[in-house]
Amino acid sequence: MSAKASKAPRNWPRLSRERLLKLRICDLGLRIEDSTLGAPLKQLYRELEQKQLRFRPHVWLSDEWFCPDGVPGFAMPFFLAHARLRRLEREFMLEVEGGDRAWCMKLMRHETGHALLNAYRLDQRRDWKQTFGRPSIPYPDTYLPRPYSKRYVLNLPNWYAQSHPHEDWAETFAVWLNPGSDWRRRYRNWPALKKLHYVDELMNEIHDKPPRLRNRQRDTPVEKIRTTLGDYYADKIYRYGLDSPEFSDTDLTRLFSADPEYRRHEKASRYIRRHRREVIVIVERWTHEYRYRINEVLNEMIKRCDEMQLRVIDSKQDTFPDLAACVTMLVMSKLHSGGFHIAL
């Protein structure tokens, strides 16, 4: 049972983390108009204007990034609306999804693709289905991406275009909309280029037409989220943990040793702690995995290394590349076996 929620005082950004976590999200008084999100939203509308598109999605704050079915708009996570909440998100998740301008724009273009598809009901068209597949295919719980496939564009992490025809559309639209993507050159000789040309032709066809759907519906708006920040992060950590890669004792003994001859060497757990940040950066770069999940693997490694009383064998220069390679292998193994859970 969660602690009793406290109404947010005006000075809530200056509260301690403990007191902040007891506040309900709906009581924080968050609005896009009062945040720094106005600038990227204006940029999004400029990009749509530059493409001569009449469509403009409506946007609201909620608990995460999403576009509901049948709604010509999308939601952005509430934590992007205030610097204190972005810091809190980073404390728990080690990163802020959409926390910098470039990442935010990628996500906004992606969600705009979903919203535009809803507005014009594009997935009902025969040519859309021929290009992206059957939209009626149920979303899977997990998907198994092919990292080297050239049939899909690359915009968001985890090869998200491969998860469902709707995501393939949204990712392709996002790349097409991005004025800096240079998609004709970037995807030259890729099968994905055919999809980009289709988007280009389709947008030229409908650019000045009014949307078929014009509702302003908002799903789970921030002012109705009565969950406390503490419960929000407890649930989020649980969901992210579903995809955490696993390791074996054999993986650890290939890196470290419990042999008494190394008892004067540095503890393996301490070594991992010292190099945690560097490992996370390298593994994230090569796997596109969330930092939180990589960090959880390292936390479990640290715990198990202490239980097994493991010590460093080689010099720092020899051990670090092997450690980074090991964690990268674990993440990629997860990718090729269980796949990634879909974030709906």
Rank of each mutant, 00 (worst) to 15 (best):
R54S: 15
R54G: 08
R54P: 10
F55L: 13
F55A: 12
R56S: 09
P57Q: 07
P57L: 06
H58R: 12
H58V: 09
H58D: 08
W60R: 13
W60Y: 15
L61K: 04
L61F: 08
S62I: 06
D63E: 14
E64L: 09
E64W: 06
C67T: 15
P68V: 01
P68Q: 12
P68R: 08
D69W: 05
D69F: 07
D69R: 10
D69Q: 10
G70V: 14
G70D: 15
V71C: 15
V71Y: 09
V71T: 14
P72V: 00
G73P: 13
G73W: 08
A75H: 06
A75F: 08
A75I: 08
A75N: 05
A75V: 07
M76S: 07
M76N: 01
M76Y: 00
P77T: 09
P77Q: 03
F79D: 00
F79K: 02
F79V: 06
L80W: 03
L80A: 06
A81M: 04
A81I: 00
A81W: 01
A81H: 00
H82F: 02
H82E: 06
R84Y: 02
R84V: 04
L85D: 01
L85I: 12
L85G: 03
R86C: 10
R86T: 12
R87H: 06
R87T: 11
L88I: 11
L88S: 11
E89Q: 14
E89S: 09
R90S: 05
R90A: 07
E91M: 09
E91D: 14
F92E: 11
M93K: 12
M93Q: 14
M93F: 13
M93I: 12
E95P: 01
E97G: 10
E97N: 14
G98E: 05
G99V: 07
D100P: 01
A102S: 11
W103K: 15
W103R: 14
W103L: 15
C104K: 01
C104V: 04
M105A: 11
K106L: 12
K106Y: 09
L107F: 09
M108H: 00
R109W: 04
H110W: 05
E111N: 03
E111P: 02
E111W: 01
E111Q: 05
T112L: 07
T112F: 04
T112A: 13
G113T: 12
G113Y: 02
H114R: 09
H114Y: 13
A115N: 06
A115P: 02
A115V: 08
L116Y: 02
L116C: 00
L117W: 04
N118H: 14
N118A: 11
Y120F: 05
Y120E: 00
R121N: 14
R121V: 12
R121P: 03
L122A: 05
D123M: 07
D123Y: 09
Q124A: 10
R125Q: 10
R125G: 07
R125T: 03
R125H: 07
D127L: 08
D127H: 08
W128E: 05
W128V: 10
